[in-house]
Design a protein around this nucleic acid. Structure first.
Length: 486
RNA sequence: GGCGCGUUCGUCUAGCGGCCUAGGACGCUGCCCUCUCAAGGCAGAGAUCACGGGUUCAAAUCCCGUACGCGCCA
């Protein structure tokens, strides 16, 4: 077995790339990279009503943001690159039709003239008689005369694939093992619609074969369709690829992950300030693991260690809390310069970029160890750039303590001298001396000082914060706070 | 309704017949560090392995049912 590993992700551009799709993309990508193979992207846009160019863009943007590159596939909304293209299904309809004709000619598919009403009736009766509601194959053996008659009556046919009526089709799934389906229980699948186009299951088979995919790694929801697809491969004289069906991703309530549970679109995670690396690592672990339960992976590690054997059969619940923890881990591991750069758009959005005040790099440095999301950054550093109009409730309480006003005035007096260095260590020494001199405990001074200067009870380490803020601003805020106390 | 898949701490999971008095991670609790909040360090609580039958000297691990959840077809 020396066939080259080729995997794909084949989204329908009918919305954003959601978390489940992102994970499928990641697994396909990891598997291809692990084996030194190729990863292909294909756009399944045969649903003309629901497919939109905006969705194509959103999906490509999402995959790019995740840091997953494809070797063949679309380059923009319409064009593709790669030797097995085009990679937009709507541009491949002639290919599908060609194969349809072949099946028809070989007697492996047939035209079905049943109307929607007739099919509904068939289903109703079956249900009434407690039989499985499936197509009964009545058009399988129409005579030419009958066919001409129906067509003369204006009936537009669909085309159905002739499923074998006995035996079983085995799906040898790399994750779930051998799964057997009775052929007699499968129905003759529609492969060509009355509206003159291929159905999903038909186009998919043809593309996966012509694009020379070695492995089809996709969501669990496709497992039930796989026996039909395997039969189509055989009818066309092709060898099916290796299949691997991934378990689904659930919401916290056990239902399918949906908007109700929060963000489902990959781009929303980007906009909340998650790092692509976090998403790769977290999503990798949602349904896959190594025997030692390793949690944090570099990208090369992920590629080196990823395998289908480590994939979970049971569904996994998406856990935002763990995602956030992981993002915090990676944010801390990111250089300050990089974090400042990444926080840029968030600061911009909060209107903090142009404001006078300390260098952003210095203020962000004070909080770098703390935040889990880039979107938290503006809130954490904003008080450096905007004097708090009112202290936060907790801070107000601290400032309201007896003697607080005197402490503030005393500090203002102490820090007034411009010849003393306004620097972390020196400030700490002087203020501690001030405490001793006044017979106050450190906390009685530190807490009001923090509250007066920042308007908050939590924040950066005190003296470094003062240094970064600068003497003038600190004094102004001390005075303002003291005045506010009346 | 039929078919298929699944079921180990709250969550992600390790486990593939004896090493399991079920391991790790997130979260949670407590302690330490400490000028606050985090981060970090340490300790701890937390799973009768869905349930019921088998097989076996021995089962979370194999087999059969049941329940529940999910998917596909309609």
């Amino acid at each position: 077995m020396t066939t080259k590993v080729r995997t794909r992700f084949a989204p329908s551009p009918t919305g954003y790339l959601h978390i489940g799709g992102a994970r499928t993309t990641l697994y396909n990508w990891l598997f291809a990279r692990h084996h030194g193979g190729e990863f292909i992207l294909r756009i399944e846009d045969t649903d003309e009503v629901r497919s939109t160019p905006e969705s194509v863009t959103a999906i490509l943007d999402s995959i790019q943001w995740l840091g997953l590159d494809w070797d063949e596939g679309p380059v923009d909304g319409t064009a593709s690159k790669g030797p097995r293209g085009p990679y937009y299904q709507m541009q491949r309809v002639a290919i599908y039709r060609e194969h349809l004709e072949r099946l028809l000619k070989d007697g492996k598919a047939y035209r079905c003239y049943c109307t929607k009403e007739e099919l509904d009736e068939m289903r109703r009766l079956a249900q009434l008689e407690k039989r499985p509601p499936r197509y009964d194959g009545r058009c399988r053996s129409l005579t030419d005369a009958k066919r001409r008659e129906l067509e003369a009556a204006g009936r537009k046919p669909s085309v159905r694939f002739k499923m074998p009526t006995d035996g079983a089709t085995i799906v040898d799934d790399r994750i779930r093992g051998k799964v057997s389906f009775e052929n007699s229980l499968q129905q003759d699948l529609v492969i060509w619609k009355t509206t003159d186009g291929p159905t999903y299951n038909f186009a998919c088979v043809i593309d996966d074969h012509l694009m020379e995919l070695s492995h089809v790694i996709r969501g669990d929801e496709h497992l039930s369709n796989t026996p039909s697809q395997i039969q189509i491969y055989r009818a066309l004289g092709w060898e099916p690829p290796v299949f691997a069906h991934l378990s689904m991703i659930m919401g916290p309530d056990g239902g399918k992950l949906s908007k109700r549970h929060g963000a489902t679109s990959v781009l929303e995670y980007r906009d909340q300030g998650y790092l692509p690396h976090t998403m790769r690592n977290y999503l990798a672990l949602l349904g896959w693991s190594t025997p030692d339960s390793q949690q944090l992976f570099t990208d090369p590690e992920l590629i080196a260690k990823f395998d289908l054997a480590g994939c979970q059969k049971s569904p996994a619940t998406f856990d935002t809390v763990k995602l956030q923890w992981m993002n915090g881990e990676y944010l801390r591991a990111t250089s300050l310069d990089e974090v400042v750069k990444l926080a840029g758009p968030f600061l911009e959005k909060a209107g903090l970029t142009g404001k006078p005040g300390p260098d952003l790099k210095r203020t962000i440095a004070l909080e770098h160890e703390k935040f889990k999301l880039l979107s938290e950054v503006p809130e954490l550093v904003s008080f450096f750039y905007e004097r708090p109009a009112e202290p936060a409730p907790k801070a107000a309480k601290v400032l309201g303590a007896p003697g607080a006003k005197d402490v503030l005035l005393g500090l203002a007096e102490l820090l007034k001298n411009g010849s003393e260095p306004f620097e972390d260590k020196a400030l700490e020494a002087r203020i501690r001396a001030f405490c001793a001199e006044k017979g106050l405990k450190a906390g009685q001074v530190f807490h009001p000082l923090r509250a007066a200067v920042s308007g908050r009870t939590e924040g950066p380490t005190l003296f470094l914060m003062l240094e970064v803020m600068g003497r003038e601003e600190v004094l102004a805020r001390l005075k303002a706070a003291a005045e506010r106390l009346g």
